[in-house]
Design a protein around this nucleic acid. Sequence first.
DNA 1: TAGCGACTGGTTTTT
DNA 2: CCAGTCGCTA
Length: 751
Amino acid sequence: MTYPEPVEGRSLLEGLNPAQREAVEHVDGPLLIVAGPGSGKTRVITHRIAYLVQEYGVTPYSILAMTFTNKAAREMRDRLNRLVGSHSDALTVGTFHSFCARLLRREGERVGLPRNYSIFDDDDQMSAIRHCLEEADYDPKRYPPRAVLATISKAKSVLQDSQTMAQHAVGDYFEEVCARVYRHYEELLARNGAADFDDLLLRTAQLFREFPEVLQAYQHRYNYLMVDEFQDTNIAQYRISQMLARSHQNFCVVGDPDQSIYSWRSADVRNILNFKSDNPRARVISLGQNYRSTSNILNAAKGLIATNGQRLDNDLFTENTVGLPVQLHEAYTDDEEADSVIAEIGRLSREQGFKLGDCAVLYRVNAQSRALEEACLSQGMKYRLVGGTRFYQRKEIKDLAAYLRLLYNPQDDVNLSRIINVPPRGIGAKSIQQLGEWAAYRESSMYEGMREIAASHAARQSCPAPLATRAVSSVARFVEAMARLMAFSQEVEVVKLVDLVLEESGLRKHIQDSDDRPEERWENVLAFRALAQEFNAETPPDGLGSLLERTALVSQVDEYEEAEDSLTLITLHQAKGLEFPVVFIVGLEEGLLPHSRSMDSEAQLEEERRLCYVGMTRAQQRLYLLRAFRRGFRNGTGGGPAVASRFLREIPEDLVASADLGPSRAVSPPTPGRGSSIRAAVLANAAASAAPPSGPSLRVGDLVRHRAFGEGIVTAYNPSASDDEVTVEFAGGVGVKRLLLSFAPLEKLDD
DNA sequence: TAGCGACTGGTTTTT
DNA sequence: CCAGTCGCTA
């Protein structure tokens, strides 16, 4: 086999700094790349892969690259397409979950997973857990399904099965209960021929452990292994990658402990911290130069993260311009905070040449998006909300998908239960319960049981199951329709199947006749149908399988496309890996950032700090930090005065400037106590530490130019002990601003 | 069984 | 404030 002539590998090294180049040129043996924010990480990974292929003749077929999100995978593949050309098709690039899902599709039967296994998403897991709680006779009030599921999931992510979990749980009653529920859950998954998210990893690890020949085959195939965002891997992922790399040791991991923000999802930073000791031959390369942010922004972020105790020191630096100070705005309420942000973005786009697409507002919790959305609406600004209710989580989509999943895997009782009465066909909760119990008793799936009921109904025999006569004929009709569809699912292309399902199930009519925004929901269905189109080419049952895998493993950020020019609203977590010229972080208050649920341990607090750090380092040119004195929690109730986030105090003061963005500066703060003192402190310190400008002494009536606000006229001048304050009326709709003379980039104009 | 209204409880981040 | 659950009635 020959590979394209990259002609000169030089070009792949061109424009790289020494550390980047070293990483690209490292070929054999374990390698840890510690990549700070904006240090050209993706470039290094892609160039390294291209370098392997072009300089060392490594076949792309033997390279496996794992990423954290599908979006990252797609981006990597796009870049590789450009670097390596058409041969990049042979590369394996994907998330851990999708890699494992596909692997299990081929090999899973050895660990008891049928070829057509279902992937259970959150909803499925929750219903399954509820069912298991009932089976095990535990009160869901005492043992909230969410918490139970979370505990089980945690155990799974450290590769524990229910038995191991039970051993570890001794003495902790709640965990003991969870371990018992876990056992039921395992059985349920097996009965349903299903795997949940954690299983994709757990089962793959199990498969590798129990079937060395399978592991060997994959080791043999994948000679070069790369893992991105290594700080976010959990134990299962770590184990899988270590096993894969064991024979050849060509194991390159990339990450940054300071950006580890997923420990709540069982990510374990120790994976990256211990990489060196786990792989003694490992080379460690730090990418220290930041190409993204102004030095003010970078230094502010560095100052914040330096507060963390548990940390490898990294020497992040930049040669970029100094830029403006980080802008701090303190609003009175969350609504005003949102208004200020949106107004400022409008101003930036009108006067500073930024596009809306250059701007992003980052927040800790999704609930904060609401005020921002309202502000956008009232000020007529185009925005894009990342997250919220996911596309695949909408009822109409989930229902349609549930039908398809049942067709693909008739053993799947969970999805059967979901749609058996959607649209209503007279098989209510009671009947479902009875069917479930009867099926369990006969040790068959519900669908199998229903087929028998339908058969005896057709033969005019009495119903073998204890079921209301009224339900029996409904069941028969349902089975009849599903049987037809199942036959089709083996024959027709996916889109055709989707259409048939929509008709035969009555779902189309159900949605279109519904009185809850039928046209919008139908639009969603059509969008799903368009997605299905992508899998039309695959031979019948496979296309369906791929479509379902895609719907199960896709995330919200994946749907995010920088398409039309609009402002991005996004959570801090989701913003990881993105960058924007202008970034606003809102809600810098105790209890929100850091979040109240993460304040009882130092470790959690440090993670919150890293989260803030991640947010700040998304910014290229401008960074705004905002807080409100009062945040309405439940519109009226609660909403006491909010204390400024400790993180604000941890950012070096000389890098921060107070920005007066508010549309309403006439009002005085409702609670002058603690809140405003921080602001006063920031102002005072900023003034004290900034070198007093020899600059212009101004008088009322002088014309001035401000770097950001443009031209204006001085309308008031208040000398004071620490600093002089000027009031300037700016042109172009900017309005009146009060500025500190030592601080504001003001330039006096001669008339 | 379905559909409605009342009530409760609870809220981080997501592959 | 919301969703999701519960209990009642037709």
